[in-house]
Simulated assay, not measured.
Amino acid sequence: MRMSSNYKFMLQLGGLATLLNMLLHLAVAWVLWHDKENVPLWGKASMVSFMFIGGGLAGFIVGYVVTKATRYALLKRWVFPLHWHLKSQTLIDRLPRRIFYRSFMLALSGVLFAFITLLCFKALNLTTLAAPEFLIFISLLAFLLASTVTVMAFYRALGDGTYLRSKMQLIK
């Protein structure tokens, strides 16, 4: 059984986005803490500030790039639009239509990832992580964030304008 062109495109785009996001987070974290033994949870150069800033920026950038790439793929007919419109009102359907606002909302999901992680650290009473452990942890967090944002941005971009296109076909 062949894989749908939409799934194939999403996996290729998502794989590239997650790999680049992981490498970028890993590189920045390595530059900041490669000479340190432990990475503190709180403070100016800490896990919290890195996760909030990195999560927000990654959510925005990945959401923006994936939406633009999906819209371009729709124009080139590499992928096909969804055949439903936004009446179901799932979380993805509630993302804004305009790309900047949508990317901002996806950036907030990156900040939410960081907040949930912070709550888990607090529940475990973690105040520091060894630098190598933190590098592994931040790579996994970057992978999860980029893959989640990719799926949300991709499916929302596939649904962009579907309702309007169906109305235009009814008028013709």
Rank of each mutant, 00 (worst) to 15 (best):
A123E: 09
L144T: 07
S4F: 01
H85G: 14
L108N: 07
V28K: 00
L74D: 03
S109G: 11
R71Q: 15
P132C: 04
F143L: 10
L75H: 13
L164R: 06
K76S: 15
T162M: 06
W33M: 01
A130P: 06
L112S: 09
R98P: 09
R77H: 14
L170Y: 03
E37D: 07
A69P: 02
L141K: 12
A29G: 01
L32C: 02
V31A: 08
Y163G: 10
W33N: 00
M1T: 12
T70W: 02
V65Y: 08
L141A: 13
V149M: 06
F9S: 04
V39L: 00
F113Q: 05
S49Y: 04
A157S: 05
F137N: 07
V111E: 08
M51V: 09
R165I: 03
F60V: 11
G43Q: 00
L126T: 08
R94T: 09
W33G: 01
T148M: 11
W84Y: 15
S4V: 02
L95W: 04
I99W: 04
N6Q: 02
A123I: 09
V65N: 04
T148P: 04
S166E: 10
F154A: 04
G63D: 06
R98T: 14
R97V: 14
Q89H: 14
G63Y: 05
T150I: 07
N125L: 12
L11V: 08
K68D: 12
W84C: 14
R2V: 14
A146W: 03
A157K: 01
K36A: 12
M105A: 12
A142I: 04
N21E: 02
L23H: 00
V79A: 10
I53S: 10
T162D: 04
A153Y: 02
G159M: 08
C120I: 15
A142N: 03
L24F: 08
C120F: 14
G161H: 01
L23K: 01
F80I: 15
S88Q: 15
L126H: 06
Q169V: 07
G159L: 06
L74W: 03
A146G: 07
L170M: 05
M152Q: 09
V31S: 08
G159S: 09
S139R: 06
V62I: 13
L75Q: 15
V48R: 06
L57N: 09
L23W: 00
I92C: 10
S5C: 10
M105E: 12
K76P: 11
Y101M: 14
K44W: 13
W84N: 15
F115V: 10
L158Y: 00
H85F: 13
S147N: 10
P81M: 05
M152K: 06
W30T: 05
Y101Q: 14
M168P: 06
L24T: 08
M105H: 13
F9T: 07
V62H: 07
M10W: 02
W78V: 15
S4P: 00
G59A: 07
L164Y: 06
A69I: 07
F104R: 04
L144K: 04
L19T: 04
N125H: 13
D35L: 07
L112A: 13
V79W: 04
